[in-house]
């Protein structure tokens, strides 16, 4: 078991122009844990996880203050290679985003472009990743079919397969189940539990039951501040903060 995949956030401030979306956030995500992020809409959950793979760079006039370390390395230095960072820190989005390619090529594409051409290696990886994402049995007979022809839940699992194909250490998931039915959601949750021994997973969710079910630790954000970050069992049974308690008991939000 490798011990890579640690995220350390130190006194992080984040600005969209003049608007401060994150305020002095500090937290550590240990390797091979599942961390759930919850909080009311607009509190900065997506912003925070997009800082971990520098997707927030894509929006002009944003600014990061503080430190974000992945495996001890600052990812906001001048000589950070964003492309290889993103290979190490994969991401799955709310809306499934299959590429307009075949099922096979969706998974293989990330490998092909880093120069892996050996068909045996590609075939093996595609099969391994589709098995890991619990999609193999459903698609093994038509890998050449368009990925867009899959159902929403299948597409989402394909996106997970695609993310793990490039061998990341961390997988970020931004509300990966919010467009899925309960059965598809359950499958993704099982999958996360199975992936945990290889990957660190950070999942944003609006579903508190989901957070309680899948995660080792839960972070609660509000107005850009990290209100509480604790072991999930303690978080939900014995919140140390009054605001957290109000939130998880549904008194607001």
């Amino acid at each position: 078991m490798n011990t890579n995949g640690r995220i350390e956030v130190k006194n992080l401030n984040f600005y969209y122009g003049n608007y401060q979306a994150l305020k002095n956030v500090s937290m550590t995500v240990e390797p091979h844990q599942i961390v759930a992020m919850i909080g009311p809409s607009g509190c900065g959950k997506s912003t925070l996880i997009r800082i971990f793979n520098r997707m927030c760079d894509l929006i002009p006039s944003t600014r990061v203050e503080g430190k974000v370390l992945i495996d001890g390395k600052d990812i906001y230095t001048k000589d950070t290679d964003v492309v290889s960072l993103r290979r190490k820190v994969g991401m799955v989005f709310q809306k499934s985003t299959p590429f307009p390619k075949s099922i096979y090529d969706n998974v293989a594409y990330g490998l092909k472009i880093i120069g892996i051409k050996d068909h045996r290696v590609l075939n093996e990886t595609v099969e391994k990743c589709l098995r890991r994402s619990a999609l193999w049995d459903e698609v093994k007979d038509h890998l050449g079919k368009s990925a867009l022809s899959l159902s929403g839940g299948q597409q989402q699992r394909l996106c997970i397969a695609r993310a793990i194909a490039v061998d990341p250490e961390i997988i970020l998931m931004d509300e990966p189940c919010s467009a899925l039915d309960p059965i598809a959601t359950a499958r993704i949750e099982e999958l996360m539990a199975a992936l945990k021994d290889e990957y660190t997973i950070v999942i944003v969710t609006h579903n508190m039951q989901q957070a309680a079910r899948v995660s080792d630790k839960t972070a609660f954000l509000m107005h850009g501040q990290l209100i509480e970050y604790n072991k999930t069992t303690d978080f939900f049974t014995n919140p140390s903060n009054k605001i957290t308690e109000d939130y998880i008991t549904g008194r607001f939000g």
């Binding site: 993103r86 594409y109 490039v166």
Partner: peptide, 27 residues
């Protein structure tokens, strides 16, 4: 082409030109 598709490509660690030639243009 939906913005999410570009993000998905970049998040996979594809350089931008690859996202364009491999994902955006085919779409």
């Amino acid at each position: 082409v939906p913005h999410q598709l570009r993000e998905a490509g970049l998040a996979l660690g594809l350089p931008k030109w690859r996202v364009i030639t491999g994902i955006i243009l085919p779409s």
